[in-house]
Design a binder for these strands. Structure first.
Length: 803
RNA sequence: GCAGAUGUGGCGGAAUUGGUAGACGCACAGGACUUAAAAUCCUGCGGACUAAUACUCCGUCCCGGUUCGAUUCCGGGCAUCUGCACCA
């Protein structure tokens, strides 16, 4: 009986002791860098979702080593974050302590599954020697004008007195205490990712990301072309700028809408005759999230700014100005011109508040009724003076030329992407290495002083007004200005968790360097991550943020490549046995420790690869994992039928060549489930014939090794098949031997299968035709019928069309 | 709402990308071994009609189209899942 517990421990110890999977910078072999998203070390320990992605990359990494590559396959911990801090607040334990415990537990768990990580390069984002460089990058961003301070609204719990993430806000209430959440103004550090928007789109051309990942990033960045147009405010020197993708519909603009937070409201509060009402609306809007505000089928709300009017620049008509929460301060200019005749949201708003609707496009459908709905389609312009009779493209071109000539607008590209809010009012994050001096303004600290470490404190509660916990430690924040030497105050906000994960793949290249984030030599040698696998949910944040940082580092000459990741793939989520997302409250959580204890690491690995297509969600099945365990037992028992022969046996030669081909290719396409079923078919075949030669077994074990490294090494050693498998050369196949000489050819009549015949491969149509027509069944079915035509797809199908 | 995906037996899924739908595994049923059970091994397993592994018909979410032939391509619809910027 196979004793997985002892065997797995034995090989894991050996790999550890011998540092089997250590990557050597500068080695002559071709390099290959495989990356998985490093985990957040939560108190719950590893989730069964982690080993899915990790096993997949481990399979590829192990295969690459066998194919002769110098492989870098590292692991680390993304250890700053809210849960540790919340735990610290509640239990008065330093987050450092709980984080270390969690990391130890994760390490134990990861090692128990036998991943071929290079543990000597393990990193931890909360280590000052690591975050020193996160802070260093921030200072460089600041120096290049890409970090700036601005006021932003954040979610703020009025009873905990703390800033909240969107996720912590549930139905407008604080997730922790149920207190009321409001939008509070805060001065925050921002990073100008928008400056890189175009390059983040363009450079997708040079990387190999799944199409849906590219599409999602492009949509997230949301480039749109249009124009900015200036609307004068009547009886004032101010004007409202709007961005529109349809400047050609300007003649149909019958009112304007600005975001409730728009600065103009405050400025003109004396002229707004219904300011009380306006103020009330602003307060209500502040309670809603962006998501609630932009929901299209909710009914539109808004308040007119009475006493203010705007002038439509194309016809000098006076139009009213409204505030409404469907307009976002953060997108475009925070103001829109409304063309209700041709925009659904504007139409709904105009109907509700009885505003003018002027069609400026002639519908294609003559029965179209503008009284009933907005016309969204294209058409020839009407009611538009000098644009009349033009189509969309012509009209856009003409109006932009006109706007530019009259100096009331210009062509403009707008992006949905917003700048990155980089401040957190939290303790457990990298301190932002900035100092504020009355005289000199914001100054970065001297780079020689890095890392700026977190002070050792006992309490982690936020301040009265929602300031960072660091703000209650004057001994830490009182300092001197690096420029003038006068009194100055440190920034007390910390960085978001995204910071440390935006560049961690670079640190793996040279993790112990205390002079640079990584040496030039290491950066040049490892160059780029060759293959990065991670969750689809990180596509628009982490993946985009790290591409942005990488491009910046490229611009300042730190890294040699424009893009961090040459290839990006994604895995699907694992659901609970009931088909729902695993969660403690639903009681459907599967613990990887239990699986390793009960079935062993190899079974867990094989099952996770077998459970379904790698890129799709899959529910856990308690019964199916047992099937994988049984499968490995059957392989172990195959040692009893070993035949002392250093060749393939004639009856297995084709199968071996086919299997090597299939597994070799399927791993590259991440079709791990079909690799495992290929292994199962092989076992069925060997067991049926009750024999396996030494060479067959050896090659089979090499193919299996990336999936089930422990049992394959043990069988290889136990049955004396050869050298250890970790660096054994990957088997090759002979294309000729993957093709069968005889084929089973289906015969269809009118597209329906009626018979099959066994014929030699590559017969000509004439030869096949003869055999087909001799077939009794075929004769019966075609007698008295007219043969219209006969189709032969060589080695695929023979179809007779009859009437 | 916006964006991205998915839909095939009782279940997870396979199908060389337009060519025998259901590989492989699970569950289930029958048998062998056993005093018995577990484990293991063998057989069957989409549905209907059947004595039948003879025939025949239906069948890859729904409706329509292209084709000798559609799970695969096109148009329209329905359902489910994921993300939405301070969750990691």
């Amino acid at each position: 009986m196979y004793n997985f517990k002892a065997v797995e421990k034995k090989w894991q110890k050996k790999w550890d002791d011998e540092q089997t999977f250590k990557a050597v910078t500068g080695e002559k072999k071709p390099k290959w860098y495989g990356l998985i998203e490093f985990p957040y070390p939560s108190a719950q320990g590893l989730h069964v979702g982690h080993p899915r992605s990790y096993t997949a990359m481990d399979v590829i990494a192990r295969k690459r080593r066998m194919q002769g590559y110098n492989v870098l396959f590292p692991i680390g911990f993304d250890a700053f974050g809210l849960p540790a801090e919340n735990f610290a607040i509640k239990n008065h334990v330093h987050p450092k302590i709980i984080t270390q415990q969690n990391i130890d537990n994760f390490t134990r768990q990861l090692k128990s599954i036998g991943f071929s990580f290079d543990w000597s390069r393990c990193i931890n984002t909360t280590d000052p020697e690591y975050y020193k460089w996160t802070q260093w990058i921030f200072i460089q961003l600041f120096k290049k004008g890409l970090a700036y301070k601005t006021t932003m609204t954040i979610n703020y719990c009025t009873s905990c007195k703390v800033g909240l993430s969107n996720e912590e806000v549930v139905n407008g209430k604080c997730e922790r205490c149920g207190g009321e959440v409001i939008q509070k103004e805060k001065s925050e550090w921002m990073l100008k990712i928008t400056e890189y928007a175009q390059r983040l789109i363009d450079d997708l051309d040079e990387v190999d990301f799944l199409d849906r990942i590219k599409a999602q990033q492009i949509n997230w960045i949301g480039r749109s072309e249009g124009a900015e147009v200036e609307f004068k405010i009547k009886e004032s020197d101010d004007s409202l700028r709007v961005f529109t993708t349809r400047p050609d519909t300007l003649f149909g603009a019958t009112y304007m809408v600005i975001a409730p937070e728009h600065k103009l409201v405050e400025k003109y509060k004396d002229r707004i005759t219904n300011f009380k009402e306006v103020e009330k609306y602003q307060k209500e809007a502040a309670k809603k999230s962006d998501f609630e505000r932009t929901e299209i089928n909710k009914s539109k709300t808004g308040v007119e700014l009475k006493g203010l009017k705007a002038i439509n620049p194309v016809n000098n008509k006076e139009i009213p100005i409204w505030i409404s929460d469907y307009v976002m301060a953060s997108y475009g200019t925070g103001a829109i011109m409304a063309v209700p005749a041709h925009d659904e949201r504007d139409y709904a708003f105009a109907k509700k508040f009885k505003l003018d609707i002027i069609p400026v496009l002639k519908p294609d459908d003559p029965d179209f009724d503008i009284e009933k709905e907005a016309y969204i389609g294209d058409g020839i312009h009407i009611n538009s003076e000098f644009l009349d009779g033009l189509n969309k493209e012509e009209a856009i071109e003409k109006i932009i030329a006109w706007l530019e000539k009259e100096k009331i607008g210009e062509k403009k590209v707008n992006y949905k992407l917003r700048d990155w809010v980089f401040s957190r009012q939290r303790y457990w994050g990298e301190p932002i290495p900035m100092v504020h001096c009355e005289k000199c303004g914001w100054q970065p600290i001297d780079e020689k002083e890095l890392p700026l470490t977190l002070p050792e404190v006992k309490e982690f509660e936020p301040g009265e007004e929602g300031e960072s916990p660091l703000a209650s430690h004057p001994e830490w924040f009182e300092t001197t200005c690096p420029k003038c030497g006068g009194k100055a105050i440190r920034e007390t906000d910390t960085m978001p968790q995204w910071a440390g994960s935006s560049w961690y793949y670079l640190r793996y290249m040279d993790p112990d360097n205390n002079k640079e984030l990584a040496s030039k030599k290491a950066l040049k040698y490892w160059n780029q991550v060759d293959w990065y696998n991670g969750g689809m949910e990180h596509t628009t944040l982490h993946l985009l943020y790290s591409r942005f940082w990488h491009k910046f580092l490229y611009d300042i000459g730190v890294v040699p490549t424009k893009e961090p990741y040459a290839k990006r793939t994604s895995h699907g989520m694992i659901l609970g046995p009931n088909g729902e997302k695993m969660s403690k409250s639903k009681g459907n959580v599967i613990n990887p420790d239990d699986m390793v204890n009960e079935y062993g690491a190899d079974t867990l690995r094989v099952y996770e690869m077998f459970m379904g297509p790698f890129d799709q969600t899959a529910p856990w099945s308690i019964e199916s994992i047992r099937g994988c365990s049984k499968f490995l037992d059957r392989i172990w028992k195959m040692q009893d039928m070993l035949v002392d022969d250093d060749n393939y046996s004639p009856e297995h030669e084709k199968m071996m060549n086919k299997a090597i081909k299939k597994v070799t290719n399927d791993i590259e396409e991440m079709k791990f489930n079909t690799c495992v079923s290929t292994f199962m078919e092989m076992v069925n075949e060997f067991v049926k014939d009750k024999k396996i030669t030494r060479k067959e077994f050896r090659d089979f074990m090499i193919l299996l090794n990336p999936f089930a490294p422990h049992i394959s090494e043990e069988i290889n050693e136990n049955s004396k098949l050869g050298e250890p498998l970790a660096y054994a050369p990957w088997p090759t196949f002979d294309e000729k031997l993957t093709i069968d000489d005889m084929i089973n050819l289906p015969i269809q009549i009118n597209g329906k299968l009626r018979a099959t015949i066994d014929v030699a491969k590559d017969l000509s149509q004439e030869e096949i035709k003869k055999i087909v027509h001799e077939n009794e069944k075929v004769q019966k079915l075609i007698e008295d019928k007219n043969i219209v035509k006969e189709i032969y797809v060589p080695n695929r199908i023979y179809n007779i069309v009859i009437k």
